[in-house]
Amino acid sequence: MAYSFSLNTRLHKTITGLLVIWLCGCLLTTAVYAQRIQTAFDVKLLARGLNHPWGMAFLPDGKMLVTERAGRLRIVAPDGRISEPVSNVPAVYHEKQGGLLDVALDPDFTTNRLIYLSYAEPVKTSDGTIASTAVARAELDGNSLKNLKVIFRQDPKTQGGQHFGSRLVFAPDGNLFITLGDRGNHMEEAQNTDNHIGTIIRIRPDGSVPDDNPFVNDKKAKPEIWSYGHRSVQGAAIHPKTGELWIHEHGPRGGDEINIPKPGKNYGWPHASYGMHYSMIPIKDEHAEQGYEEPIYYWTPSVAPSGMLFYTGGLFPGWRNSLFVGTLAGQHLIRLSVSENKVLSEEQLLKNTLRFRDVEQGPDGAIYLLTDEDDGKILKLVPAAN
């Protein structure tokens, strides 16, 4: 059944004071700083009770697939009903940032029913469990997966539960981008192309390597690599006009970046960043003079970005072609106005509210948000009623 209440947060052209969130009979009041909101919207609560949801993808019938980091895949109906866990999901390494992560539909889903899952894949050794990001594809058959096949494994597997990435994005040419992380304690390997640490991966949907990948003829490099020198990329989206991949990645203490990764290019981590190491050791912020690519935009202090969307819908004409980024540490939703390859302005929405793990556009043109918490929620942004 549908929820009989909504999260009625109405933001008008100028907000000063309190943001009042009504959730299931509990009144929560959160301070909101004065800010200019150019588009009025309401926030409705579609569903709740998900355990640290991570990724979502809309099915053709309006339902959505939602991952829970603990290793469960759910189907959520348009009225908010949550299914029992989908069966035959691969086993995951559920530690710290590891678990079941992103989900994406095959471009030909309506005919082949294929979906793709990224996750931290565990392997037990005599020294303990090691893990790395893996991607599997399978056919969605009702509330079950069948014919599951792993099409990519990050090499090497290492100990630790940090920095797995990982978003899945299909490019207009049908190839699949996979974003990865440096696995925390292996940051120096992000400068080496003989492994997958700290890289963006580009493969065909069956896991094979496109002939025009930048390192396909380099016998010392991994042929799946598109770009390298990344820290932990948890947001990715295709620009609606250029067809290029845009990403954002976590910096250490400051220096979260937006990049447009070019084939074969090095983005500098851990030798260049606008942040500093957690040990307070500074990092050179000069990228270009060290031979690295400069980010097109960055945040200091960190907002901990997660989820990324170019909005192309019709519900919010004033937001069309804006870039939306969810934040974890920042606990707000960012809207960026962009022109060509430049960010022109930043607008912060829903300030000081919740940790937003993912942001997606629904087939109805609404914007959907996942909240990262034990009682994870799906929120829906729609035009203001008045």
Rank of each mutant, 00 (worst) to 15 (best):
M1I: 14
L7V: 05
H12A: 09
K13A: 13
G17L: 07
L19V: 10
L19I: 14
G25E: 11
G25S: 11
L27S: 13
T29F: 07
A31W: 13
V32E: 04
Y33Q: 14
Y33S: 08
Q35N: 13
I37D: 11
Q38L: 05
T39N: 09
A40Q: 07
L45S: 09
R48D: 03
R48G: 04
H52G: 02
P53H: 15
F58H: 01
K63D: 04
M64L: 07
L65Q: 06
R69A: 02
R69Q: 10
A70W: 10
G71V: 11
G71N: 13
L73T: 02
R74Y: 04
R74P: 04
I75Q: 04
S87R: 09
Y93V: 11
Q97L: 04
L100H: 00
L101Q: 04
V103M: 13
A104P: 00
T110F: 15
I115T: 03
Y119T: 02
Y119E: 08
E121P: 12
S126H: 03
A131W: 04
T133I: 15
T133H: 05
R137D: 04
A138R: 01
G142H: 03
N143P: 12
S144A: 08
L145Q: 00
L148G: 06
D155F: 01
P156E: 04
K157A: 15
Q159L: 14
F164W: 00
G174H: 12
N175A: 13
G181C: 08
G181M: 00
R183Y: 13
G184C: 13
H186E: 06
M187W: 11
E189I: 09
G198D: 07
G198T: 12
I201Y: 15
I201D: 03
I203N: 03
R204I: 07
G207P: 01
D211E: 14
D212V: 07
D218L: 12
K220I: 13
K222Q: 08
E224Y: 08
E224H: 15
I225E: 06
H230Y: 14
S232V: 02
V233I: 11
G235E: 07
G235W: 02
A236E: 07
I238R: 00
E244L: 06
L245H: 13
W246S: 02
I247N: 11
H248D: 09
H250D: 12
E257S: 14
I258H: 05
G264I: 09
G264E: 15
K265W: 15
S273I: 07
Y274P: 05
G275A: 06
G275F: 00
H277T: 05
Y278A: 10
S279E: 09
S279Q: 00
I283C: 09
K284C: 08
D285P: 04
Q290S: 08
G291N: 06
E294H: 08
P295Q: 01
P301I: 06
S302F: 00
S306C: 12
M308Y: 08
F310N: 07
Y311H: 00
L315F: 12
L315C: 05
W319R: 11
R320T: 07
S322H: 01
G326Q: 05
T327N: 09
A329D: 15
L333N: 03
R335M: 05
L336P: 12
V343R: 10
L344C: 01
E347V: 03
T353E: 05
L369M: 02
L370K: 00
D372I: 13
E373H: 05
E373L: 02
E373G: 10
D374W: 12
D374M: 11
D375M: 08
L379I: 11
N386S: 12
